[in-house]
Design a protein around this nucleic acid. Structure first.
Lengths: 192, 192, 192, 192
DNA sequence: AATGAATGAGGATTCATTCAT
DNA sequence: TATGAATGAATCCTCATTCAT
């Protein structure tokens, strides 16, 4: 009976992960010490290790969660609308830490094949979906075009992480206009 | 006191920076120890500290150099040609470490305002130049459009750093086609 | 408050001690964590502390029990037979952990005066008994001879703990022969 | 040129090993912290790790050195004299820590196969030599007899480690007398 | 100029023990 | 009685940096 509820366990885990995410977003993975996370989470060092085998394990958990939250777009039927919505969400002030964390994850993927696999599995699927959808909508290479759209997303994340004053709406409008000219047929039905 | 030539000093400095760049590209800034750099450079620890005040100073030097090498494009008169050339250079296998280092720098810019300033000063100028040049070439917002082109560059760097098998030529072709449709007037004179 | 029977309490205690003995025999006292014992015993950490004040207390309990089981020989009237039986028991495969634990106890006795007292009180009495019995049976110094016989026992324990393939029977035969030559009068009546 | 002499390096290493040996003899391997060794040696933590890869490596070095110092006896032509000299040396007050360390090593050999190999390789050779030499000197099983003599040595080490008041001379005399009766032919030439 | 030995604070992780349930 | 979540001091080890040579 001292065994606490699963909800409590899950909440604790989230508490640690949230604190870790804040730390990682602020200082990067390898300038964040476990003590930092302990302080930020208000949970003792020993307990953190009951939830995560170590720092690396926590990083993997963070990245996994990060990607789980970002799966939706690129998939649905309203591809372009979803994409533009995704771009728009980059401008949400509440997502600042999210963007920063994302950039740290990108860098970490270059060091850790495990992280790279997570990042790729989160990006390759949607990109392939997008490429498939682009078939027939344009005479340009659909795979290349999908890469370009992903690149725009990534670059905008980066620029916004660096500088929150980026005029997101203007960029989204520009991208929408580009899309409209590249895929004129889709404009009527798919643009929001 | 055997005073050595300035050329010798500069060569030493480059030797250290080159070794550091390899280490940083491989392991990131904060998973690279000074010992790693000492080993990789073949230069003693003590001497490294006569060229650089510390690790942070070395990171700044690396980033400064990294941006100095990337200044040219976006400036010249043949803006679009330069841009596409820049994109194309991402596919150069010899630049792999460069791309990886770049991604690490992006992440580090989120931690260090000094690095952020360097990164911004390296990006803002060209982007402003580009925006100015785009004035009159299109009815889209030039600033937003410039951001989009920078984003494409950044995203392509990231995707290529993760996966060297990216079909760079196809992406460059797609971007060229996009540019041609967005800026039809410029096509004749500026596209390579 | 569900007061349980004394038998239950004793069984619990033995369950913990048996698990601890296995752990200690395998890893030594100070490379065995309380968690190891918790795992091995299947009893919760909290409960372990209701039976033992702490790890040191458990070690004392283990050593006490270990010596209680080893008191018989050297005392009885058939001194030599008992001694040889004791040597023979070292070869019993079922006592492997016992031997290993014994060696750990010997080492621990060098650290803890409490353990040393236990070990000595377990050894000094029998040795004195043996010395007394040897009086008149030999012209050698009885105390020294008793020490030699104890040493043979200890060394054989050690060698067998290290290497279970030791030919115990051959060693016991050799010791019996030595005894027979040293104490010829006793041979007829006392050797098994 | 800041590279110090090999003699200095060796002296440093010995300084650390000597301090470690004192600590290990006092507290055992796993109750001695690296900080203890740092304090005892007067050498900084970082430097210790330039000489030894870690605690385990230091233990191995200690055990290796310990056995190197104990190789001589059992080998020479004057087997019995050497053996008795070895027993006698156990009583040397200056070797107290040595004995204590030895007992810790015996216990550690049960945990670490690397230590066990060292211990065995230090003991098996001499024992085999002794057994060979005993062939023809007695009608008892030479291998078993060799084991008994080794056991006497080990047991005497243990008893002396526990209690420095053991009357070593009396025990050595007793053992000499036993040897004289078991191996009467050898008495004249080999006993000291 | 150049070396690399030396430092000690700081890093991740484990552990004996306690306590709310 | 019994649980196991929770603690935080202590452990092993690494690292940026300095300094005698």
């Amino acid at each position: 009976m001292p065994k606490v509820s699963d909800a409590h366990l899950a909440a604790r885990r989230d508490q640690i992960l949230a604190a870790a995410a804040r730390c990682f977003a602020r200082d990067g993975f390898h300038r964040t010490s476990m003590q930092d996370i302990v302080r930020e989470s208000g949970i003792s060092a020993g307990l953190v290790y009951r939830y995560f085998a170590g720092k690396d394990d926590m990083i993997v958990a963070i990245v996994t969660e990060w990607h789980d939250q970002r799966r939706a777009p690129f998939r649905a039927d309203d591809l372009i609308g979803n994409y533009l919505g995704l771009l728009r969400s980059i401008g949400d002030p509440g997502r600042r830490d999210d963007l920063r964390l994302g950039v740290q994850v990108w860098a970490e993927a270059l060091r850790s094949s495990q992280i790279l696999d997570l990042v790729r599995s989160g990006a390759d699927g949607p990109r392939a979906d997008a490429a498939r959808a682009l078939h027939g909508m344009t005479d340009l290479d659909p795979d290349a075009l999908a890469r370009v759209f992903v690149a725009i997303y990534q670059g905008l994340v980066l620029q916004t992480a660096w500088d929150e004053t980026v005029d997101n709406a203007a960029v989204v409008d520009a991208v929408a206009a580009i899309v409209a000219r590249l895929l004129p047929d889709s404009a009527g039905e798919e643009l929001q």
